[in-house]
Design a binder for these strands. Structure first.
Length: 347
DNA sequence: AAGTGACTCAACCGCAAAAGG
DNA sequence: GCCTTTTGCGGTTGAGTCACT
């Protein structure tokens, strides 16, 4: 379909609107309405194209536009609607009176998306970042397994590591292990809790992810919708500045529901939860009109998760060695990520 | 106080669908 | 049914602002 530019470039102003231009547009629309955007600027005495006028009116000058910060309810709605609709900003906006698609799009990109990422949730799929879990499991095996079971050299030669991020991580691990060999060789068989306690996670999500992988809290396998809701409230109150508290409570629940059904669907799961407990966390219940934070997780659990470009597809190919290492010894299962690894590189 | 990088958000761009002749 | 015009949408940009050094 041939397209003619909506306006002549010459002689028409671009860029920020002045108060005078705003007033002209408001006055004209209040008098005549906005029938034809193409002829409107000329009639209103504006050196703008119709497209620019329409955008200015719909996104800024319209009298019913709500200004100010998004409320918790609006934020919940956006997340829930996005999990269903994707980037259909205008459709999402139609469910939020007074908010424009542009505003919602901006808010998503600058706030919600980052929050979800920092919580270990893929904002595209609304699923837990399984690549982080996978990395965590690899780290677990690599750092504290006995050398006879697993080592980083082996990690570097593993088939599933096709992702360059994992390769970077593996390389970093190799380097950090060399450092540890020099400094911590005294603790060959058992990790030293004092030393580990001194190592701080850069990302609390990972800490929880790692901990939960190896030490599942079975009490979390219950219906959590109300709890999740209160967690979101906490998160919102903290304005995203203190995610650790939220994440530590929230992420294990995500992992509980998600890793069970996806991580190793055919064979024995890492933690072998009862099936019924997994299903109670299914959030795709359209009859639930109240927002549950589980709605963030919208991807059907039965489908393989194709994460975004910075993510890694996890196919559940866990070797017998690794599986054993997860479940055989609680000592070996505890681990932490060295500071040398920048978790943000994987987010 | 100046420099720099990160962040925000209004505005633009290109495309596609809808509408009209 | 075809072509042109208009409208709407989603992705992206960049100027302004803020925070930190």
């Amino acid at each position: 379909m041939g397209r003619v530019p909506c306006c002549e470039k010459n002689g028409l102003k671009k860029g920020p609107w002045t108060p005078e231009e705003d007033q002209k547009l408001i006055d004209y629309i209040q008098k005549h309405g906005y029938g034809n955007w193409r002829t409107l600027p000329k009639n209103a005495g504006l050196q703008r194209c119709g497209k620019s006028c329409r955008l200015r009116w719909t996104n800024y000058l319209r009298p019913d536009i709500k200004r100010g910060r998004f409320t918790l309810e609006e934020e919940e709605s956006i997340i829930q609607l996005h999990s269903i609709l994707g980037n259909k900003w205008s459709t999402i906006a139609s469910h939020l009176p007074g908010r424009t698609d542009n505003e919602i799009k901006n808010y998503w990109n600058t706030h919600i998306r980052k929050k979800l990422l920092s919580m270990g949730i893929d904002p595209v799929t609304h699923s837990p970042r399984l690549d982080l879990l996978y990395i965590s499991s690899i780290l677990n095996s690599s750092l504290y397994a006995n050398s006879s079971n697993f080592n980083i050299q082996r990690l570097l030669t593993m088939q599933p590591i096709e992702n360059t991020e994992l390769l970077k991580l593996a390389s970093s691990l190799l380097f950090s292990q060399q450092c540890e060999d020099q400094n911590l060789c005294a603790q060959n068989d058992q990790y030293n809790p004092q030393i580990l306690n001194q190592i701080q996670f850069q990302n609390p999500v990972q800490q929880v992810a790692c901990t939960e992988l190896v030490e599942p809290n079975m009490s979390s396998f219950t219906d959590l919708s109300s709890q999740q809701h209160s967690l979101l409230n906490d998160w919102h109150r903290n304005n995203g500045t203190s995610l650790s508290t939220f994440s530590e409570d929230y992420i294990p629940q995500l992992l509980s529901s998600y890793s069970y059904s996806n991580y190793n669907s055919d064979n024995q799961n890492l933690m072998d939860p009862p099936l019924s407990e997994t299903t109670t966390l299914n959030s795709n219940n359209s009859s639930n009109k109240n927002f549950s934070f589980a709605s963030v997780l919208s991807t059907p659990s039965s489908s393989p998760i194709e994460l975004n470009s910075s993510s890694t597809f996890i196919n559940g190919s866990i070797t017998e060695d690794e599986r054993e290492s997860y479940g055989s010894s609680s000592n070996m299962l505890k681990f932490e990520i060295p500071e040398i690894l920048d978790v943000n590189e994987f987010m």
